[in-house]
């Protein structure tokens, strides 16, 4: 029997299949859309093709209470911290950049959440900021990486608010700035918004779907804070953490 962890994000729903020892056997990410149940069911169906699944399913994220499945719900921040501590086993700071929000979490040497912060209401520093700008500039986010690598100038985009940032970018275009430099500037702005969430201590671990899909973000974090890493598959860590948080409880 295998356990399933599901992180219901605003943009993507992330699922992991975990064995009784807590090892990840498989993972699957689907678009959330408007139906949390449908998204979760796709994950369950996918895992059920090859493995027998044990209920309840361990969930976190925005739609965690609404599923028509037997579930045990968790806080996505506690779950993420659990996953990171299981991997690194030391005190560290985490910055997680998702579709709707950015989180800062500090964990102690014993793996306990000591402090955390979720970004304010606006989109600056989150995935929606990138998507909005991509839409406005008519450049698919998947092409951002390529452009940013060709940047020759370190442009700053200062606006907090996405709408203001868009006007700032229009100004930059009008002044003849090149697209690669502007996209590089957008990445810079995301990193700056994240760095001001709190004082960073110990190793900084970057997680979430946005840095996973935009590796330049990690490079820019490293410029500001050297001791900085991003684990593979960082998008699915909270889903995995959900299972880990309950592993010993269900074993006993």
């Amino acid at each position: 029997m295998h356990k399933v962890g599901i992180d219901l994000g605003s943009s993507y729903t992330k699922g992991v299949l975990v064995d009784t020892e807590g090892k990840i056997i498989d993972s699957y990410v689907v678009k959330t859309g408007f139906d949390f149940n449908k998204a979760s069911q796709k994950i369950i169906d996918k895992f059920s093709e090859s493995h027998k699944i044990e209920y309840p399913v361990y969930t976190c994220g925005y739609g965690r209470e609404q599923l028509d499945l037997p579930t045990v719900t968790n806080s996505e921040i506690t779950a993420l911290a659990k996953a990171i501590y299981t991997m690194y086993k030391k005190n560290c700071s985490i910055i997680d950049i998702g579709g709707q929000d950015t989180k800062y979490v500090k964990i102690t040497e014993a793996g306990i959440v000591e402090k955390f912060k979720v970004n304010r209401k606006c989109a600056a520093g989150t995935g929606s900021f990138l998507e909005e700008i991509a839409f406005r500039m008519d450049v698919p986010p998947s092409e951002f990486k390529e452009y940013a690598e060709q940047a020759t100038d370190n442009i700053k985009i200062n606006s907090y608010c996405t709408v203001f940032a868009v006007s700032e970018i229009i100004g930059l275009i009008k002044n003849g700035n090149k697209l690669p430099n502007i996209i590089h500037g957008i990445y810079n702005s995301i990193v700056d918004r994240c760095m001001e969430m709190s004082l960073i201590e110990h190793t900084l671990i970057i997680t979430g779907g946005i840095p996973a899909n935009h590796p330049m973000i990690l490079t820019l974090f490293k410029k500001r804070y050297e001791d900085c890493v991003s684990p593979d598959q960082s998008q699915i860590l909270a889903a995995w953490g959900c299972v880990l948080l309950n592993l010993n409880k269900t074993k006993s």
Partner: peptide, 28 residues
């Protein structure tokens, strides 16, 4: 983050997750 009367300043989902995490933190 929120407001006394203006509910447009309050993100309920974000705050619930933060509050639940905070209680997890106290429990730990």
């Amino acid at each position: 983050n929120g407001d006394l009367c203006d509910s447009r300043c309050y993100s309920e989902e974000q705050s619930i997750i933060a509050i639940e995490t905070f209680i997890d933190q106290l429990a730990a």
